[in-house]
Amino acid sequence: MILALIIIALVILGASAAAMLSRNLIHSALLLVVAWAGIAAFYLWAGAEFVAFAQALIYVGAVSMIVLFAVLLTRQGATAAPVEFDSWRRAVLGLMVAGGVMGVMFGAIMGSPLDGRIASPTPTITVKQLGLLLMGPYAPALLIVGVLLTVALLGAIVIAAVDKSEETP
């Protein structure tokens, strides 16, 4: 169990770190897909089947696609499209901030009294239970998410649409 978790963690962290350091935008996006798939594997490991498949469907199938399309639509000139780091100052400052945040969180995790209940069996939640929860106590939130998604869809179309009408040939 723990070994599987460590392997999944290494995949997620390795892929995401490589994505953030890569100079090739397409490689970054594809490495991030690996990281997202790793996160889906983590959900499977934790017993949240439904969320794992939803993660795979939405991130690997949909979000990755719009990111790749955006990379291709905003490409400039050269085919390889290497993206340089902006400056050493930014990189070092970013690393320092992230290191500080990591230190604080690490201290908090190590210092807090989390009872290590290892013996608990993997809890499972069936799709039916999830559906009943979504339609029962969480129905207002579900409605709001639906409205949010619709607004986001319309907003994305309005923002990205070309203003002038194209002449049809």
Binding site: L5, A9, I12, L13, S16, A17, A19, M20, A35, F42, V83, F85, D86, R90, A91, L93, G94, L95, V97, A98, G99, V101, M102, M105, F106, I109
Partner: peptide, 16 residues
């Protein structure tokens, strides 16, 4: 794991 991932994302958002 999750805080490390958060920090990797933070580096990406800040340094790139």
């Amino acid at each position: 794991l999750s805080s490390l991932l958060f920090c990797v994302g933070l580096v990406g958002a800040l340094a790139r």
